[in-house]
Design a binder for these strands. Structure first.
Lengths: 347, 347
DNA sequence: TTGAAAGCGCTAACAA
DNA sequence: TTGTTAGCGCTTTCAA
């Protein structure tokens, strides 16, 4: 049963050693080796020690495919990986993916990436699910009004969403999200504490629930401080020049001394308008963005920005996923995490 | 043998249908179903049609684990995913990963991400390799003088490197890289064509082979145009303020009219110095960066930047990987791709 | 505490 | 062209 050659020096053998090889060499049954790996408590200490040593000698590692077949699991988490939009400052995905990879590793999972196709948003999910290639999914694009979450729910596929089900009040799935309103409230209060009273808002169009949520943080903080928001808000596309135009209009019409923006992209637009008008960011006019993107960090006048706790998001997601997969009751439908404020020279 | 319940409506059954289920329902043997999936040419057209229809009816998809176990493959490509460095403008990884995911999908592979640990750079590779969890690796961090490539070569693990083996002239592995010198040459010539004669270089420290390679593109293009490089070069850390300082010194001492930088991060530093000195980028002084990061795209004065053809890199890597995995002879050790120049207002 | 038997779902090899 | 047999390496019974 055993292969004649195993690790010769440090070189991997043609076929890696199997459980049977370890068992034979250690003079125990295959099952005992399996237990040594998965239920070490069942072995007598000396047997365990002997088996472990043999495992080390042979460089044995359980064959993934065999284990997967037998246990009907894969230890893989599927994540649809959409590229960062060119021309915007959104680098959140990159940071999130890394956090997810780290958090998953901690509990023995790996992350499997698959491409997205806007024409067929569930195709990739369906394939992986039906071929039992992944144990669960992390869904990051709930906010687009995409059907993934509903579809996965219907399939009873285990998944956790990063993002609230804005469109669907009846959604029963589990999600983790960052409280954008709280982040903007933090930013607004920060500006007010710095002495600003005319704090303007530049956000997204009204049909963006995330944008409206963030906006509400500005409104509520302004009002809580007895400040008016009249004439200080603008809703535009999430591109730099729209932010620049909005800032120009607001400066002309309402003379704000500070801007809170729904994104770093829009904040860059504001900074551009300030530059054209020879206004110094942070001195003449304060600016705050959202996402703490590389742009915010690298821009010569550092851009103050709301930072999502993506590491924590990933940890919560993985935690919830494990509960889901072990059929433990999941206590809460949704988890909302608080962002922080990365304060730089622009405020 | 068959399960009683399969797809009831659109809901996934408790256990998905197997090959045996399809075979029974279609009235053929299991092997015939397997052939219908993997070698359709072997079947008579009518049999094939019947089996295919049954597959569709049942929503059958081959169980990954079983196939993997039998074929000793996983259809998975391992990629160590390191996060983008905070405070730098390098967004290349994100774009590359997406390209790799797309290119892999095309040929039936998925990308498995695993975390990196600088303390133990080969640990992750070793685990995945020994447990036969992936078919091959894509190695992206050859430039750090890391031992991965050498180690993987020694293990005879199939892998392709993104990046040349700068440190190790004797390396025998296959790689794909972007010709940084050509990119910088392109940028330099672009500036010269615009009428600049005093084009300065701000690059990395001398111990960075990538930096020195890029620098050589500047040197050779300047000389090819009969221009002097004396006093026009600077080597610094890859952080914004270093770029800003270098630009200030160069402006004072050598009065360049244009800057070519080894990174967008350094270019941002140059832009900062220009801003402080009230010099207009693109009008008074031209600036070119490297990587076409989000920063370059979003910066209000668009930053001209060398853009790596990461989509092509991914395609070449996957192509090479397939050849490697099918034991076809790989014609070339290394493939060098040409970058392009994304021209914006800063030049 | 250890061992034996069975089988997860698939495909390679061979036979009909 | 289709069917039969065997077995990939592991873990889950169950028995000793």
């Amino acid at each position: 049963m055993a292969r004649s050659e195993h690790r010769s020096g440090a070189t991997l053998p043609v076929t890696p050693p199997t459980l049977a090889d370890v068992a034979e060499r250690a003079g125990v049954s295959r099952q005992t080796v399996s237990n040594a790996v998965n239920n070490p408590d069942l072995l007598r200490p000396d047997t365990l020690e002997r088996v472990r040593q043999t495992i080390a000698e042979l460089g044995y590692s359980p064959n993934r495919a065999a284990r997967n077949l037998r246990t009907r699991t894969s230890s893989l988490i599927g994540l649809r990986f959409a590229p960062a939009q060119e021309g915007t400052a959104n680098a959140a995905m990159d940071r999130f993916v890394h956090s997810l990879v780290e958090a998953s590793e901690e509990v023995g999972y790996h992350v499997l990436l698959f491409p997205g196709d806007d024409e067929d948003p569930i195709g990739g999910y369906d394939n992986l699910l039906r071929s039992t290639a992944v144990d669960a999914f992390v869904v990051t694009d709930t906010y687009l009004g995409n059907p993934q979450a509903a579809w996965l729910s219907q399939q009873r596929a285990p998944f956790v969403a990063f993002g609230r089900p804005w469109d669907d009040a009846g959604a029963r799935h589990v999600w983790v999200d960052v409280d954008g309103a709280a982040g903007i409230a933090l930013a607004t209060q920060h500006l007010i504490d710095r002495g600003h009273t005319r704090v303007a808002w530049i956000g997204w169009r009204k049909d963006s629930p995330i944008g409206e949520d963030r906006r509400s943080g500005w409104v509520r903080t302004m009002h809580a401080n007895g400040l008016s928001t009249t004439g200080l808000a603008s809703r535009v596309e999430d591109v730099v020049h729209s932010g620049a135009e909005a800032a120009a209009v607001l400066l002309d019409e309402s003379a704000p001394t500070a801007f809170v923006c729904a994104s770093d992209t829009l904040a860059m637009g504001v900074l551009h308008t300030l530059w054209i008008r020879q206004l110094a960011p942070g001195q003449d006019i304060a600016v705050v963005g959202f996402d703490d993107s590389q742009v915010a960090q690298v821009y010569p006048v550092g851009l103050t920005s709301v930072r999502q706790p993506l590491e924590d998001v990933a940890v919560e997601i993985v935690r919830t996923l494990r509960a889901l997969l072990s059929h433990q009751p999941v206590e809460t439908r949704g988890i909302l995490l608080e962002p922080t404020l990365a304060i730089r020279e622009s405020s």
